[in-house]
Amino acid sequence: MKMLPHPLLTPILAAIWLLLNNSLAPGHIVLGLLLGWAIPLFTVHYWPEAVHIHKPLTLLRFMAVVLLDIVLANLVVARLILGRPQSLHPAFLKVPLELRSDLAIGLLANTICLTPGTVSARLSLDRRFLLVHALNAPDGGAVIATIKQRYEAPLKEVFEPC
C-alpha cells in the first residue's frame, strides 16, 4: 500500500477544505493536509485508474480556452433564446471519438455541455460515437469539426499521448 496513492488529490482536497472553512489559519492547513492524505488512502479502491497529466501547460491553455468559450457560448445561447424560436435549427450530431480513456471522454462530454449550444446526449456502447444535440446547427459538419479540433485534440494530447 502506497502512502500517497493519488498525489494530485492531496493538494486539491486540502484546498477544498480551506475554501470550505474560508480561512488560512495554520490549524486548518494541517487538518486539510491530513484529510487530503487520509481520504485518498481510504478510497483508493474506488479510483479505477491513476491520472497522468502529460502536458500541464496544454491543460492550462485548454482550461483558459474553455472558460472564454463558456462566456461566449452564453452570449450566443442568450441571443438564440431571445430570438424567434421558429428560426432555430436543432439537430442531433454523431461525433466520432478518438479518445479512449474514461476520464478524457468524460471531460470532453462535460466541455461539450458547457460550450456553444451543444449538449452531449449519449455515448455509444463501443465508445466510438458521442451523440450531441445542438441548439442551432444549420451546418452539422462544421460543429463536429470545431468540437474535434478545439476540444478533443488538446485533451488527447494531455491524457493520451501516443
Partner: peptide, 20 residues
C-alpha cells in the same frame, strides 16, 4: 429560465438552464 419556458421541445429547452 425564459428559454425553459419559451422554447418548443425538450431538447432545445435543455440548453437554456444548463448554460445561461
Amino acid at each position: 429560465s425564459l428559454g425553459l419556458a419559451r422554447l418548443r421541445d425538450f431538447y432545445t429547452r435543455l440548453h437554456g438552464p444548463t448554460k445561461a
